[in-house]
Amino acid sequence: MVDADKIEMLEDKARAIRLTVLNMIAEAGKGHIGGAYSCTDIIVALYYGGILRFAPDNPSWGLRDRFILSKGHSGSALFAVLADLGYFDTSELALYCKNGSILGGHPDRNVPGIEADTGSLGHGLGIGAGMALAAKLNNTGQRVFVLVGDGECAEGAVWEAMVFAARHKLANLTLIIDRNRQCVLDFTEDCAPLDPFSDKLAAFGWDTREINGHSFEEILAVLEEPVAIVEDRPRAIVANTVKGKGVSFMEGILKWHHAVPNQDELFAARTELAQQTNYQAS
């Protein structure tokens, strides 16, 4: 059982991050808000829930855990977290997607705390598997966490990496799938269906779990487990999420993949996020 105070702290933090993301995207007039919101709780759990080992004052600390946001279009949520943690000044967030900023629409390694340049989908798991192999052979204990979108899993390279990671027993590798069931034009099951997704991952040799990706209790319960429950297997977590989570008029609506709120919508979204004093996962 995860501590209730900790859950409340994480819910507060997630709400603050969502508000920051909203402001960043509204200010920039661009950004991918739906996918950022579907994975906000996962990123918050990783960084504030005591899961990742990291050092904001020393981003290249050798023993840090590696986190790759393979769905790079959700970079706004990660930027908000990294700034809050002190990787760079929070004033930089106001410059998101502006001339001369380090923060573009997708993460790159000019940004302190970013491990891999992502944006083109399907690359992160292979890179993460290479990093996990390096850590395993060095026997230095770093773990690698890769967060992919479910739409991204239509890319064949993701499955090539899955085969490799299972073959080489990369038990220090965790794949988290933001299963919001949407891509840009369609719902995943209507264009490149993935179900039964967990069964597929298990069949590929991964230690697979399915959770509610907006329940900190469930996220932490699985992330706090020793990395591999089934020995010598990489771990896959199918996190069932809602695209646009946190702002009711965005939730599950395709256009909020990368729509930008107008003034009325911005006001409504701010009001709703501010009112969620007891944020409940659905």
Partner: peptide
């Protein structure tokens, strides 16, 4: 390591090792 007939993954795994 033989990554199999998977050139895309060959380069990604190599990059992960290279970054380390």
């Amino acid at each position: 390591f033989n990554v199999g007939i998977a050139e895309q993954n060959l380069v990604s795994i190599a990059a992960g090792l290279g970054l380390e």
